[in-house]
Computed example of a mutant assay.
Amino acid sequence: MSLFSKIVDREIPAHIVAETTEFLAFLDIHPLTKGHLLVIPKKEVDQLFDLDDETYVGLMIFARVVAAGLRDAIPCERIGVTVIGLEVPHAHIHLIPIDTMDDMNFSRPKLKVSGEELEAIAEKIRSALS
């Protein structure tokens, strides 16, 4: 069972900002920028392009909705999107508020954000989505 499946099953806590019966969006606890989200299908599939068509399209639509709320909640030039998938064997999309190309550089040090600040950011995004 992947780390993300444990989040889906609520075995591991997460700062969840949006959820449907099929998808989940939550804050990355080691973000590149404040508001960095992970968007996942609840069904555990290792790689994005191995998802069935319906889940793949649904995930993209869900990510677009979440990105709109993220853009409203976190001031930024745009929302960057990337799929890397090397760290957790569960398909996921990174949504990252960015102002420069370097904001999406995964080789740079991650931000250190307290649990309280993560929850405040999550609440701001949830409010923008409602």
Rank of each mutant, 00 (worst) to 15 (best):
T82L: 07
T82K: 08
T82V: 06
V83H: 00
I84M: 10
I84V: 14
I84C: 01
I84F: 05
I84K: 14
I84E: 06
I84A: 05
G85C: 09
G85N: 09
G85S: 08
G85D: 06
G85K: 08
G85E: 03
L86T: 10
L86G: 07
L86D: 03
L86C: 00
L86K: 10
E87Q: 13
E87D: 10
E87R: 12
E87Y: 07
V88K: 09
V88I: 05
V88L: 08
P89S: 13
P89A: 14
P89H: 11
P89W: 08
P89T: 14
P89Q: 11
H90Q: 05
H90A: 03
A91T: 07
A91P: 00
A91E: 07
A91H: 06
A91S: 10
H92T: 09
H92D: 04
H92I: 05
H92E: 09
H92P: 04
H92Y: 01
I93K: 04
I93A: 04
I93P: 05
I93Q: 01
I93S: 02
I93H: 07
H94M: 03
H94I: 06
H94Q: 06
H94W: 05
H94T: 08
L95I: 00
L95W: 01
L95M: 02
L95Y: 11
L95E: 03
L95N: 00
I96D: 01
I96Y: 02
I96A: 08
P97K: 11
P97F: 12
P97T: 09
I98Q: 03
I98V: 15
I98N: 08
I98T: 03
I98M: 12
I98Y: 00
I98H: 00
D99S: 14
D99V: 13
D99N: 15
D99H: 14
D99Q: 13
T100Y: 12
T100K: 13
T100E: 14
M101L: 15
M101P: 11
M101C: 11
M101T: 14
M101S: 15
M101H: 07
M101A: 15
M101G: 12
M101V: 15
D102Y: 11
D102K: 11
D102L: 15
D103S: 13
D103G: 09
D103H: 11
D103N: 12
D103V: 15
M104W: 00
M104E: 06
M104I: 12
M104G: 05
M104F: 01
M104R: 02
N105A: 09
N105E: 11
N105R: 06
F106Q: 05
F106L: 07
F106C: 01
F106Y: 04
F106R: 11
S107G: 01
S107I: 10
S107E: 01
S107P: 02
R108L: 05
R108C: 00
R108Y: 00
R108V: 06
R108Q: 12
R108K: 14
R108N: 03
R108H: 04
P109Y: 03
P109L: 01
P109V: 03
P109T: 02
P109M: 00
P109R: 04
K110I: 07
K110F: 05
K110M: 06
K110L: 01
K110Q: 08
K110E: 01
K110S: 09
K110A: 09
K110P: 05
L111I: 03
L111A: 05
L111S: 06
L111V: 07
K112T: 14
K112N: 15
K112R: 13
K112D: 15
K112A: 15
K112Q: 14
K112P: 08
V113W: 12
V113S: 08
V113I: 14
V113H: 14
